[in-house]
Design a protein around this nucleic acid. Structure first.
Lengths: 337, 337
DNA sequence: TTGCTTTTCGGTAACGTTCTCGCTACTTTA
DNA sequence: TAAAGTAGCGAGAACGTTACCGAAAAGCAA
């Protein structure tokens, strides 16, 4: 198990200088002779020296590791956010440690519990649907590990949060349906506990009321995010006496599930029933008819979250701030009459 | 920057015993009194003690970190493989550090170059299209960091590799097209340098020859993996005097791009031109007509790769082995006449 | 030359663990 | 009862690096 690597001691011995000098030369401190530094650098290259991050981390009590805790990575949104995170983390010399909760509350708690404060400089989080891990996050922050939330935020925790404009996105989506002449608009909502499902629902309800349309509770169904959920929601809605003539889904996968259910009933999407999603998953352009949606700036959310986290890491007492990025309506065939 | 955490010294002092005993109690070594251990465990819980992985890693020269190096994570295949990896890594107490190359040779080299042997116990790799990083991998292995390849393997490096049965999958796909009566079968191949594009091409060619059909070089186009590439390939093919009546694409995204191009030309997919992909991306079931494809066992590839790597890590001199998982033909509408 | 500042370097303690060795006190064996 | 074994614990070194402090060497002004 034990391996021996090249250390700064080896370099020091070969050059007949002290480890202190080698150490300083390597991270070019001011008080080292340029010539000495050259020699050290050359020797380090020659011996294929690589720093030992455990030792550095131990003495500096920092690791250059950032944790990323998310419900999943197998979907467009999260994988794109992650790519954004990766880009800035990498540019700043930070490594990413990924934790996937599979949207399980137990899993999230377990991960947070095992999390040693010594292994992470900061944490980026999108919470799972049900877990209340607030205490865990607060303990981390208290111990000096900054936490930044993205997308699925824990409202009560006092720290920075990055999200898209869920309320206005939902408002615009609903308004668009109204503008297209749809009047009986249902909402396929997400899990009730999540902040953004509440915001999107509020945007939907406000848009309806703003146009003098009433909010009907049996046209609002809360369920999961999957395609199957969307399918099932339509099945449920179509048992109603008065059926909707438009659907606003909390995300694209669900909208697509709904479309498949409508297709099965030979309902002409767009003409008879309008459908609109949220995310702008590439699938939205693949399905036929193409899906109108509200585009989320996933990549930028990742970038910004990571940048904010890095600020929290470098400057302690960096003030927590909420960032809300605009969401953009993209009109396609599924809402064209 | 400096933070103070609870250490085993704190526990030792409070309990008035030595750090050695606390250390042994915590990782339940055999030579510690059960009563002492209980006291230590209770105190550790009370003080919210969390081990310092830098210190442990330093003394044991291992980190419990596994690196995952991939071209991308924003697609079905890689994100699913990753989920498989995550599952077994987590079950064994290993953390995952993710590196995304964006299929850039420079990026891959840079990452490999920065990679300190001290920060990783092992590495899981899917190489980028063009980079020849063979020397880097061999240096890692020589330094005692096991490497396991998945999907996009570096043939020349002597270590374990996990992949799907590209050859037979491609053979079966092509055979299926032939069975359906298509005769002028083109192949939208991947980047030429990759092992699996060569295998899939070989499977395609052998199936043709096996049925007495000739291989036409202008019906084989090598390009990237994106949807746009598939679209462009069709554009190029349809300039030919003799146009194909079926397309075998190296992956689903490319097949979908091709379908879009065919749709633009009002060509009836299936009836006039058959299309088959590779992967079984969820999109294949969303697009219309639904896409026939060869399903890759992405999740299992992730699981197995990680399990193999763990074996390499724990038992040194564990013999390298190649694992080839079966690929499965899934017939849908795009090849139905 | 003397005295002072600046540059450059070395010695040593720390960081939080594990590991190896050895010691004590108790138990077993003959 | 003596010898031998065993259970339980502690002391101290080690892992590779940085941080801190002080000292030597070099430069400079008078």
């Amino acid at each position: 198990m034990r391996r021996h690597y090249i250390t700064i001691k080896d370099i020091a011995r070969e050059l007949d200088i002290s480890v202190s000098t080698v150490s300083r030369a390597l991270r070019d401190a001011y008080d080292v002779n340029p010539k000495t530094r050259e020699k050290v650098l050359a020797k380090a290259m020659e011996l294929h020296y690589k720093p030992n991050f455990n030792a550095i981390g131990l003495v500096q009590s920092q690791t250059h590791h950032i944790g990323v805790l998310m419900p999943a990575i197998t979907n467009y949104y999260f994988s794109t956010v992650f790519t954004g995170i990766e880009q800035v983390a990498n540019a700043h010399g930070y490594n990413l440690i990924v934790f996937i909760t599979n949207d399980s509350a137990e899993r999230e708690q377990a991960i947070l519990n095992d999390l040693s404060q010594s292994s992470l400089d900061g944490l980026l989080v999108s919470v799972s649907s049900r877990a209340d891990s607030q205490a865990h996050f607060e303990e981390l922050i208290r111990n000096g590990i900054p936490v930044v939330f993205f997308d699925r935020v824990a409202d009560a925790v006092l720290t920075s949060k990055v999200m898209q404009d869920d309320y206005h996105g939902a408002f615009e989506a609903t308004q668009h349906l109204i503008d297209q002449g749809y009047r009986r608009i249902a909402h396929l909502a997400g899990p009730a506990g999540l902040t953004f499902t509440q915001k999107r629902r509020k945007g939907y309800e406000d848009a309806l009321e703003n146009s003098g349309l009433s909010v009907q509770s049996d046209w609002i169904i809360h369920s999961g995010f999957s395609q199957e959920c969307g399918f099932d929601d339509v099945t449920q809605l179509w048992k109603l006496a008065e059926k909707p003539d438009a659907l606003f889904a909390v995300n694209d996968r669900k909208a697509i599930g709904a479309m498949l259910a409508l297709k099965e009933r030979n309902i002409r999407i767009g003409k008879e029933v309008g459908v609109i999603g949220f995310t702008n998953d590439p699938m939205a352009q693949i399905i036929s008819p193409t899906l109108t949606t509200v585009a989320e700036p996933a990549f930028d959310i990742g970038k910004l979250s990571c940048e904010l986290l890095l600020k929290h890491i470098s400057r302690k007492n960096f003030e927590a701030q909420d960032v809300i990025l605009p969401a953009r309506l993209i009109v396609r065939e599924s809402t064209r009459r």
